[in-house]
Amino acid sequence: MNHSIMIMCEQSEGRILPVTYELIFCASLIADRYDSGITVVLPGNIAGADSISGADLLVINSPGLAEYTCEGWEKAALLAAEQIMPDIIIIAHTSTGYDYAPRVAALLEGGCITSVAGIEFIPDGIRYRRSGFHGKLDLLYKAGKPPLVITVLPGAFPANVQQAEPGTISYINAAIDPVFTSNLQFMIPDQSNTELEHAEVIIAAGKGIGKAENLQMIREMASCFSRSAIAGSRVACDNGWIEYNAQVGLTGKKVAPLLYVACGISGSMQHIVGMKDSKTVVSINRDPDVAIFRHSDICIVEELEKFIPEFIREAEKHTVKGKKQIPIY
């Protein structure tokens, strides 16, 4: 069996983003086994292409590819696919990837698997792993008729750093011009949160806290630890309980504290991506099957309103009067 693999280079402002090397690593696992060819497609002339090894490069030059548009990237991917005739198209599961990847799959009449977390090999082929059912179950997918488009979660594979033979480089001069879409403005809102970035202990609130009033309990729990900060899941931020600059996850911040305490957080892949590098993870949830327990060192099946006040009492018991730890938030 021989597979042809196409990778869409992930870029920002004309530079290759590191996730591209993770995609190359993922592709190389398949290539090593099936003697496949890998082609990395660069929409537009992107700096740093010489850092890519172990794959051929296909640069698509077009004035319309100066910056990302869904339409432009879709057209570039279709044009490249016409030339490469790939069995598998690998795209990063980022805000650009999930914007256009399903469209490419639909237009090529191929299957599509998004937020892939791993690949497995069995005697008759490749299987793609992602979680589903609120993150409670692992799903192993099989491709249908090629091509198959997959989007790979950032961080799912290590970045390819091995120095392999540089491949060939070819160019297509195209006239891709987005007609339905025009970019207006790129914005970088101030989302800095130094407390969270420097915290050694993060107490994070999720949907399970239920109401804004319960945030007090989360704050009190945080004050039991030194160098602590509070954070939240996407739902906690959407509900206005936690500021967006303290959101942990794929669309928020990536954190890696010594201790991460998830209070009433279900643990979707989107959230896990943001906190999986924490040294110790403690989760408190009333649902015994909740996905976050699979990513925790210590699991507590309990109502937050019952457990957290007990924990605060316990911590106070051990605190010498006047020596209470001062939180930094």
């Binding site: 698997i113 299987r127 979680s131 192993l140 198959l148 699979r294 060192d297």
Partner: peptide, 25 residues
């Protein structure tokens, strides 16, 4: 002939996942 789900399993444990028992206290 699109992609299909071939097998479903419980999500594996990525960490130790010790469960604490007893009353809340």
């Amino acid at each position: 002939e699109y992609e299909t789900v071939e097998r479903i399993s419980e999500v594996g444990f990525n960490r130790t996942g010790i469960r604490l028992e007893g009353t809340p206290a």
